[in-house]
């Protein structure tokens, strides 16, 4: 924390920045790329509108039907639902990884493709999705957040380096730049990918299971960081199984079960009745003998969400109660 080179370096580089970008534009023209991917100013009001999105996979499986979700302005929204309910499909639709068969997603009025070009869409993957033995360092990973700003050859500029440095500092990982990513703890791994989203300056940040394999301290740090990001005007969308943490940091909740069955402020949507709708088994699933979920009151005023096999899936706490470790 002793050195703060970013600000001074950025200031020193400022007179050359114009020139650099001109060169970059020339390079992009030479490489046949449009002069795109410029960092845009945060619009006065960023919103996410998914309207009547239906997604069908080539094998015919309809993963999401007529799903609508509107997030008007900066927020932290928790996306809850059982596995296979369509959470990740909704994520994919927002990230442009699947093309909806019907309906559309708009981010700040832009189509997903436009938002991608503006580098608005940032993604923090689930720990299980990443190849941790891939030969990349912490710095390499965070730098990947800057690729959208670089020219076709992906040669980092001083601004890119500064953004990487700043992102790492914000998550407290500046001391680990040269580590191979597999040689980090679960929480550190999460923070590196958060730093990548920060370096990218994503406006809509999607996090998949951000608290998987993370200790309580890191969880608190991540939550604090997410609140900061919301305050900066970003939309944070979190897909999670960890019901207990939801009331603590989500101001909105969307329940997914084949479609968005309920969405809105946490106080109104994160209720035992609604959760039971999202996590309870349908008649068809019960016929197939699959596990259902029940809610049981616990001794000290909390409600447990319990699977049919007795596993406690989560704990619903009355507002204002301290969380038990």
């Amino acid at each position: 924390m002793t050195e703060r080179p970013t600000i001074s370096a950025a200031a020193a580089a400022a007179p050359f920045r114009f020139q650099r970008s001109t060169i970059r534009e020339m390079g992009e023209k030479l490489l046949g790329q449009s002069a795109r991917r410029r960092s845009a100013t945060i619009p006065t009001r960023l919103d996410l509108r998914a309207s009547n999105v239906t997604v069908a996979y080539p094998n015919g499986h309809v993963a999401l039907r007529d799903a609508s979700l509107t997030l008007d302005g900066p927020t932290i929204c928790g996306l809850l639902g059982v596995n296979g309910a369509g959470k990740s499909t909704l994520f994919k639709a927002i990230m442009g990884m699947v093309r909806p068969a019907a309906g559309e997603v708009r981010l700040g009025g832009h189509t997903v493709a436009e938002a991608q070009r503006l580098n608005w869409v940032a993604y923090v993957p689930q720990n299980e999705e990443v190849d941790w033995s891939f030969p990349v360092s912490v710095r390499d990973v965070v730098m990947m957040g800057r690729y959208g700003y670089m020219n076709g050859l992906r040669i980092p500029s001083a601004a890119d380096r500064a953004a990487v440095e700043q992102g790492l500092r914000r998550v407290g990982m500046q001391g680990f730049v040269d580590r191979q990513i597999g040689q980090l703890s679960g929480g550190q791994k999460k923070r590196v990918f958060l730093a990548r989203a920060l370096a990218q300056d994503g406006r809509v940040i999607l996090l998949d299971e951000p608290f998987g394999g993370v200790d309580v301290t890191t969880q608190e740090q991540i939550m604090a960081l997410l609140r900061e990001l919301r305050a900066e005007g970003r939309i944070i969308l979190v897909s999670t199984h960890d019901l207990a943490s939801v009331p603590e940091f989500c101001d909105q909740v969307a329940l997914v079960k084949g479609t968005v069955i309920a969405a809105g402020p946490t106080e109104t949507v994160f209720t035992p009745t609604q959760i039971a709708r999202a996590f309870g088994a349908s008649a068809a699933q019960q016929a197939a003998g699959q596990a259902s979920v029940s809610l049981r009151p616990d001794g000290d005023g909390t409600t447990l969400v319990v699977a049919a096999d007795g596993r406690v899936l989560g704990r619903l706490e009355p507002q204002g109660m301290p969380r038990q470790p």
Partner: peptide, 22 residues
């Protein structure tokens, strides 16, 4: 030489590659 870095990014994290519009 021209696309090597993008290929590394894609090999490592195709979802991110997609999210930034590659």
């Amino acid at each position: 030489a021209l696309r090597g870095r993008d290929l590394v990014l894609w090999a490592f994290d195709p979802t991110h590659a997609r999210a930034i519009g590659l």
